[in-house]
Each structure stands twice: as C-alpha cells, then as structure tokens.
Computed example of a mutant assay.
Amino acid sequence: MKKILIITLTGLLLAACSDENNNSDVEENNQTTTDTSTDNEEASEEKKIYQIGETAVITSDMYDFDYEVTVDNFELTKEVDGIKIEEFLTGAREEHRFAVVDVTIKNISDESYVPHEMFSANFATEDQLGGEVSNDEFFTEGDKELQPDQEVKGRLVYTTRVDEADTFILKYEFTSDEETHFELPNPES
C-alpha cells in the first residue's frame, strides 16, 4: 500500500512539474506572439498616413530634399480629358475606371527640380504591396521645373476596377523609411 501511495504521489509530482513546464512554454510562446504583433503594429505605425485634404511633408529618400503633397480630390471616372476608358484600356469592361487623384505638390527645398524626374506615386489597394505608377501623359505639369517655394497642381491618373477595393492607397517614397500613404475611399462603394 505504501509503494502504491509513493508511486501515485511521485506520478502526481511529475505530472505537476510537467504541467508547470508546459505552462511556462505556453507563456513563452504567447509572449513571442505578442511581441511579434507589437512589432507589426509599430512597423505599420511608422508609415505616415494622410487623408484627402491633408498636407504631407515628405523627404525624398534618394535625393534628400523635402517636398509637400496635398491630395485635393479623388474620383473614379470613365473619361479623362476627353479620353474614354474604352479607348485607353484595351479590353476595358463595365467595371473599369480611371482613378483620378488631384494633387498639389510644393517645392519646399532650396533647389529647383522636375517632379516627374525626382519622385512618383504608386496607386494600390490596401492589401497590395506595390501598386502602379501614374500615366504621366495626364499630368504634363509634372514635367516642368519647379522652383523653390512654388507649387504645381495636376492630376495623377491610373486605371482600376470600381469593385477592386473599398479604400485605395496613394504611396510616395515607396519602400523607403519615408514611405507616406494617402487613404482614398472608393467613392463608388
């Protein structure tokens, strides 16, 4: 009887020690998971996010100068400057649209530059990593030299589908530490 009691108590002690080790492993795993999600949140918080009407001060990662961008308006349309989406996009369907982003770019650096030569903006859905570059033929103002303290207004034009996303993202300085986003709610969703 004493042997059975000792074996039973020994088994219970081993089981208790085993549970303690498993619990600490679970706690360690939970801590790791928590740390990872915190890291992901911090990484997404590092990206500067703006809304329509807000002005972002952005530093060119490649050329190390500052510029301002304000998204003045965003629309999805079937025609830009008299060009219909069916004429511009081969195989366009009913859901295809031009995504038109009206922007104001201001040179706040000490040097003049041509905006199209110095930076671009990618247009993407929320879950898309890169996105597409604008069709510069619609924003010819971006091909002209911009003097210090001057600004230029124009339209960035992309193609998309009206049903592609509830919110689109305009990205400046993509994949750099200065990556800056503008959230563009889908006006047709």
Rank of each mutant, 00 (worst) to 15 (best):
Y50F: 07
V100H: 07
P187M: 01
F168K: 08
S134N: 13
V157Q: 01
D127K: 06
K3V: 00
K84V: 09
T90K: 12
V114Y: 07
V157A: 04
N22H: 11
E87K: 10
V152C: 05
E117T: 13
E28I: 12
I52R: 01
N30G: 11
S112D: 11
T125V: 08
S24D: 14
A121D: 03
A15V: 11
G53W: 02
E95N: 14
N135R: 13
D72H: 11
F139S: 09
V100T: 11
N29D: 15
E20C: 14
G91K: 01
V103D: 06
P148A: 05
I58K: 01
Y158H: 02
C17L: 15
K78C: 05
I52W: 01
F138P: 00
A16F: 13
A16M: 12
S112P: 07
G130K: 08
M62F: 14
E151F: 04
E117H: 13
D149V: 09
N30A: 12
T77K: 07
N135P: 07
G142F: 07
E87C: 06
D81G: 05
T38Y: 14
A15T: 14
S18P: 06
D35E: 15
R155H: 15
L156V: 04
Y50H: 02
K78Y: 08
E179N: 07
L13R: 08
T36Y: 15
K3M: 00
F88C: 04
L156Y: 03
L170R: 03
V69A: 03
T36A: 13
N186F: 08
G11Y: 02
R93N: 15
F168W: 11
I108A: 04
E179P: 06
E178Q: 15
L9I: 03
A16L: 14
D81K: 09
G154F: 00
E145P: 06
A43R: 05
E86A: 06
A165I: 06
Y113T: 02
T159N: 09
S18M: 10
I4P: 01
L13H: 09
M118A: 10
E137N: 09
E117R: 14
V133D: 08
P187V: 02
D81I: 05
E68N: 03
V57S: 14
K144D: 13
D136Q: 10
K153R: 10
L12M: 15
T77Q: 04
G130S: 12
T36W: 12
S37G: 07
L89D: 04
V71Q: 01
T175Y: 12
D72P: 09
V80F: 07
V103C: 11
N23G: 10
D136T: 08
N107T: 04
E126N: 14
E141T: 03
I4R: 03
T104G: 05
V71H: 02
Q31D: 14
R97V: 09
L184D: 06
E68K: 02
Q150C: 10
T33H: 08
F182M: 06
S134V: 06
A56P: 05
E75R: 13
F119N: 00
E27R: 12
T32P: 08
M62Y: 11
L12K: 08
D66S: 03
F139I: 05
P185F: 06
G53I: 01
R97C: 06
V57L: 10
R161A: 12
E42T: 11
